[in-house]
Simulated scan of single mutants.
Amino acid sequence: MAFKFEQPPERLTWYHLGQLLLAEAGTLTYDHEHYRVHGVSNNATACVWCGLLAYGDDGMVLTDLGRTMLADWKASPEGQAWLAEWADPDEPTAGPEPTPEVPGDEPARPSRPSQLDLFAS
């Protein structure tokens, strides 16, 4: 039986992505000890309610809509950048090369007033 209580999201966000990627990999299995009601997290349950995931025998599975939206997201520039960073978090993202810090090379920062200074007479 397919549950569908909410409209599908217009675009996938962090709220859906982790659960969809786990389901795609076949690792979104049930854990009734940790998640006593549905066997999965609230995020995964919300993905069921909006038609992105469905209950399977051993765990959550992608629906046709979930598979399509995930494929579209993976092909998008946002998805490509996120997946590249996720695959190798130690790899720096594109941008200017960081300059090595040299002691005394940094401009002096003004000191922040203490919160107690607000009550000085």
Rank of each mutant, 00 (worst) to 15 (best):
E10N: 12
M69V: 01
W82E: 10
L22T: 00
Y15T: 07
G59E: 01
S121I: 01
P103Q: 01
L21K: 09
E101P: 05
P98N: 02
T93R: 14
R11T: 13
W73D: 01
A108Y: 10
Q80T: 05
N43Q: 14
M69D: 03
Y15L: 13
P96T: 08
K4S: 11
P103Y: 09
A23S: 12
A108L: 14
E106L: 11
D72E: 15
A25G: 03
A108K: 14
Y30P: 12
T45Y: 15
P100G: 02
D72F: 01
D105P: 03
T45Q: 14
E6M: 12
M1R: 13
D88F: 03
G26T: 02
G18W: 06
L21Q: 13
V37K: 15
A71N: 05
F5V: 13
L17D: 03
A94L: 10
V61Q: 14
G51E: 05
W86S: 14
T29G: 10
V37S: 08
L12I: 04
A120R: 15
C50Q: 11
D57A: 15
D31I: 05
H32L: 15
A54N: 10
D90V: 08
P8K: 02
G95F: 07
P8S: 09
H16P: 04
R109N: 04
W86K: 14
